[in-house]
């Protein structure tokens, strides 16, 4: 959910764009990290662990823990909390260690 009204911060005027999450179009704001666009659309499960398939999501938010990694434009293990969105970017839930796709 977006923070729209805020007692201190001014209105957020970053331009809108769209990215794809598991094939579905979702809105994003220019310059924000992938993780925040996903949270804004209510997506909290970013990947599943390799052996047991346990869900994982954002944890540290500063690129240190790697809990938030996803497959982005065919490249696995991209830290979504520190990688900015790009128009038309394809973001996919990563299973285990992920795999490279043809296009990457």
């Amino acid at each position: 959910m977006r923070v729209v009204k805020h007692p201190i911060l001014p209105e957020d005027t970053k331009p809108e764009m769209t990215i794809f999450f598991d094939g579905k179009e979702i809105p994003a704001k220019a310059g924000e990290p992938i993780a925040s666009a996903l949270l804004a659309s209510g997506v909290r499960i970013f990947r599943e662990t390799a052996k047991k398939g346990y869900p994982r999501g954002i944890f540290c938010g500063i690129g240190r823990c790697t809990d938030c990694v996803m497959t982005v434009d065919g490249q696995p293990n991209v830290r979504t909390c520190v990688t900015p969105v790009r128009q038309g970017m394809k973001v996919e839930t990563q299973k285990g260690l992920g795999r490279w796709s043809e296009e990457a």
């Binding site: 977006r2 923070v3 957020d12 925040s36 540290c60 500063i62």
Partner: peptide
């Protein structure tokens, strides 16, 4: 998540 992570989300990225 870390409290600082949440702080970044709300105050910098403006998302709950």
């Amino acid at each position: 998540m870390g409290a600082g992570c949440a702080q970044t989300m709300i105050n910098v990225n403006r998302v709950l």
